[in-house]
Design a protein around this nucleic acid. Structure first.
Length: 474
DNA sequence: TCTGGGGTCCTAGGACCC
DNA sequence: TCTGGGGTCCTAGGACCC
């Protein structure tokens, strides 16, 4: 265990937050998620499992222990997801191409991921953390914040939280059958996360309240989350390298350099001002599937087939989670790595393979792919679950006499769907046309179980829908 | 034959409405 | 009436994170 930032108690005015654990709201800066109301105790914990994927492999395969292990894509265009500490000695790093990792460390074991095993280990850790505090915010399979102000502790004194964190690390080791974790403790998410990085692997770092700024000042600006290569380069050109230098730049100048939201964020984080709450259970905003192919694709029919398959995977995941979305986006990376996206938004959410696939195919049609394509992807965003989406259900179902008059099916013509007027029959039963556009018809069903919905979208050449339609009069 | 996959958030311009 | 804005939604692209 180490305690950072001895001495040098800076005189930064800290506005005390009466109840240390209370979920803090955003600061005074309009729209910014950061503000000066920092906790007075080091009650935010950040836990990071060390070299997670590689460690799971070494745990499950004793022959790999003590040896360089690289987990990631093993194909021609694969990259490293995690390198064991033995492999890092040879310069192997996350996000490096597997090709380069092989040349740096040819004798390493190169493995594709066993995500089932990782998910299982992750679940064991997250379950442990949730048994300790209701406020656990996972960031990925191997990382989480824990709000100790909501944990069952006698107080939040430094000695108390430190002993608690040390015990927690040991319990992680037990429930995962030997994995190690690095832990940071601080007065905010930002500081806890910086702290967990200071003593890796298998370490604990506590940043005492009041010492944050002194800790950060000599560090490079890239310690700040959100400062990646592009932002670091902009700052470098302005002569800003360290947090101390960043702290000396006024807000207007920062906004001019990196934009409004980012500028406000950097302004506060450079002063260790971060009152973001630990938020458990965030709702998904999008679902997507993408793939990079070992050789560039040139055959349009093949691309359409691959997109259709991805559309099926996306739609299946949507249905599995009871979600549906209105916006379908395709992603296309050309041979020269230029990346394009095209999207289209429906009148109402869909979880249908046929609808997503059809839209994806149409969107691909807008693009020139003659030079070859290395990546294809499909995503759905604008998510809502059915119950939330069904606004009529919220406000009360439409009464029978408010429903539009039934239109004689023989008068229905494709491409002239009239929302609220036309009635169609599908395998789900009779429904009203709810929205129409871009070759997609959205239907709202009246059933005994769900008087006001559900809503479902179909392509207008979807067999499930069109089988019931009268012949096109044209 | 450098450069994954799953996400989140932000920006900027145009359409459209009041 | 020669000249508005503000708000929201949509689209495309980019930065960033693990």
């Amino acid at each position: 265990m180490s305690v950072s930032g001895t001495g040098d108690h800076d005189t930064r005015p800290v506005r005390a937050c009466g109840q240390p654990g209370r979920a803090a709201t955003s600061g005074t800066v309009g729209g910014s998620r950061y503000g000066p109301r920092v906790r007075t105790s080091a009650s935010v914990l950040h836990l990071d499992l060390d070299a997670f994927f590689a460690s799971v492999e070494q745990r499950d395969k004793p022959s790999l222990r003590g040896k360089p292990v690289v987990v990631g894509g093993v194909g021609g265009r694969g990259v490293v997801a995690t390198a064991s500490y033995e492999a890092r000695k040879y310069g192997v790093r996350s996000a490096m191409s597997t090709r380069e990792a092989r040349s740096r460390c040819p004798h390493a074991a190169f493995l594709t991921g066993r995500f089932h095993a990782y998910r299982e280990a992750s679940l064991a850790v997250m379950t442990l953390l949730r048994s300790v505090s209701p406020l656990v915010e996972p960031l990925s399979l191997d990382e989480a914040f824990v709000d100790l102000a909501q944990a069952d502790l006698p107080d939040l004194e430094l000695v108390t939280v430190t002993a608690f964190a040390e015990e927690l690390r040991q319990r992680v080791h037990q429930v995962t059958d030997g994995l190690t974790a690095s832990v940071g403790l601080g007065t905010s998410k930002f500081i806890a996360k910086v702290a967990s990085d200071l003593d890796k692997p298998d370490g604990l770092t506590v940043v005492p309240p009041g010492t944050e700024v002194a800790l950060l000042r000599p560090m490079h600006v890239t310690v700040i989350p959100g400062v990646g290569p592009a932002t670091a380069e902009r700052l470098r050109r302005a002569g800003i390298h360290t947090v101390a230098e960043l702290e000396s730049v006024d807000l207007e100048e920062l906004v001019r350099l990196v934009g409004k939201a980012h500028g406000h964020g950097l302004f506060h984080l450079a002063r260790a001002e971060d009152d973001r709450a630990v938020v458990p259970e965030r709702e998904a905003k999008s679902v997507s599937v993408e793939g990079t192919y070992d050789t560039d694709l040139t055959d349009r029919r093949l691309m359409e087939g691959l997109l259709a398959r991805q559309a099926g995977e996306v739609a299946e995941r949507l249905r599995k989670h009871g979600l549906a979305g209105r916006t379908v986006t395709i992603k296309v990376r050309l041979h020269d790595f230029t990346t394009l996206s095209r999207s289209s938004t429906l009148a109402s959410p869909t979880d249908s393979t046929a609808v997503v696939a059809r839209l994806a195919r149409g969107l691909l049609g807008d693009l020139d792919t003659s030079g070859g394509v290395r990546l294809l992807g499909v995503g759905v965003s604008g998510l809502a679950d059915w119950i939330q989406e069904d606004l009529f259900g919220e406000t009360g179902a439409q009464e029978e006499d408010e429903l539009p008059e039934v239109v004689d099916l023989t008068s229905v013509r494709r491409r002239t769907w009239a929302p609220g007027m036309d009635v169609v029959h599908t395998s789900m039963g009779r429904g009203w046309v709810w929205g129409a556009g871009r070759g997609v018809v959205t239907v709202r069903f009246e059933t005994a179980e769900t008087p006001a919905g559900p809503v479902r979208s179909y392509a207008d050449d979807d067999p499930e829908l069109s089988a019931w339609l009268p012949p096109d009069p044209e």
